[in-house]
Structure formats: C-alpha cells, structure tokens
Simulated assay, not measured.
Amino acid sequence: MGLRVGDSVPLFTLPDAKGNQFSIKELIGKKPFVIYFYPKNNTPGCTKEACDFRDKYEDFKNIGAEVVGISADSSKSHSNFQNKYQLPFILLSDKNNQVRKKFKIKNSLLLLPGRETYVIDEKGKIIMVFNSINASEHMKRALLALSKK
C-alpha cells in the first residue's frame, strides 16, 4: 500500500529538466502542490496527462498551487518533452526510482511504472491520492481536490 491521505510528503531532491537540483522543501510551507508520477515521456497516455496539466496550469496557479511531474526519464528527455509540448511546470528525473520507492508506488500491469497523483497542502500533508492507469482523470481529480481546500 502506498502513501495515504494524512501522511507527510517524503522529502527528496531530484534534477529538473535543466539538470538543476530541485528540493521539495522549496514548496513545503509555501504553497499547495501536485506531484504526479508517470511512466514515460512521449508515450500517448503520458503526453495526454502532461498536456492536461499544461492546459489547466493557470487554474492551478490561480489557486496558488504548483505542479510537479516525475518519471525515470533523464533531464535531457524531460527538457525535450517540456519544449515539444510547452509544459510550464516542473519535471523531475527519478532515474533510480528512489522517490517512487519513497512514495511506495507499485508498477501497473506488472511492467509499467505506476501512474499516481498526490495533492499536498502547504504544510506538506497529503490531501488526495489517485492511482489509475487512466491518464485522463489525474489532472481533473487534482484540480478538484485543490479547489475544495
């Protein structure tokens, strides 16, 4: 079983699309945020999910929230993915799946890395967890959870 509502978000630092180190501590205590884990850049489901978050990014910003996407892809792959689809939010490279393990995310369909979304309040507490291979639901549920806060 993965992390649950009420748990504290695990602390971590990962490289972003530019290769700079990003610490989740930069968000805790400042604003609510979404962390979504996805299998791979440039695959149909993952591209749809990223573009859904892109298309509603202003709605997240208007609520005062940040969006963070995490996969095992390299920073260079993230940079290309971000540029290709004009993704305005943070993408982090979890090459060794160390953060995925901290969140206790299991693989989907035995092979694919799991697709899981967390909404975290400004204090660092998880207020929503959604696990589904269905990429089209993640952004909607995250935005709804934040708008109910």
Rank of each mutant, 00 (worst) to 15 (best):
I90E: 06
L112Y: 12
F103N: 02
E122D: 12
L92R: 15
K48M: 11
T117L: 06
Q21K: 14
N83A: 14
R115H: 08
K40Y: 01
Q82I: 14
S147W: 02
T43D: 04
V119E: 00
I63A: 05
M1N: 13
I70Y: 04
S136F: 10
L27P: 00
K25S: 15
S79T: 03
C46W: 00
F37M: 12
E26H: 15
I35A: 07
P15Y: 11
Y118L: 14
A135F: 03
I90L: 13
F81G: 11
V5C: 11
K123D: 11
D16P: 12
R115M: 11
S93W: 08
K101Y: 03
L112A: 15
L14F: 09
S75W: 06
S136P: 01
I70K: 09
S136H: 10
T13V: 14
P88D: 05
E49F: 13
K101D: 13
Y38G: 09
G19R: 10
A135Q: 00
F89L: 08
K140H: 10
E49C: 02
S132P: 07
N96F: 12
L144Q: 11
R115P: 05
V34P: 01
D94N: 15
K104F: 01
K123N: 15
L112D: 03
R141D: 09
D7M: 13
S147H: 08
G114D: 03
E49M: 06
A17G: 01
N42E: 09
Q21G: 04
G64P: 08
M128C: 09
K30F: 02
Y38S: 11
N131Y: 12
I126L: 14
L3T: 04
V5W: 09
Y38N: 01
K18I: 03
Q82G: 10
E66K: 14
S74V: 03
D59K: 13
K125I: 15
L112H: 01
D16L: 02
N83W: 05
D73I: 04
F12I: 03
K95F: 12
R100T: 07
T43M: 08
K104A: 11
Q82K: 15
Y85S: 13
F60D: 00
V119L: 11
I63Q: 05
K125F: 12
S147Q: 08
R141S: 01
I24A: 09
F89S: 07
L92M: 08
F37D: 00
Q82L: 11
S23I: 05
F53I: 05
L146I: 11
A145G: 07
N134F: 13
D94E: 12
F81P: 02
D55Y: 09
C46F: 10
I120E: 00
R4L: 07
V119K: 03
S79P: 06
S71D: 00
P32R: 05
D55E: 13
G69K: 04
A142N: 10
E116W: 02
L111P: 03
K148V: 01
A135P: 02
D16V: 10
L3S: 06
K25E: 15
L87S: 10
D121I: 11
A17M: 09
G124I: 08
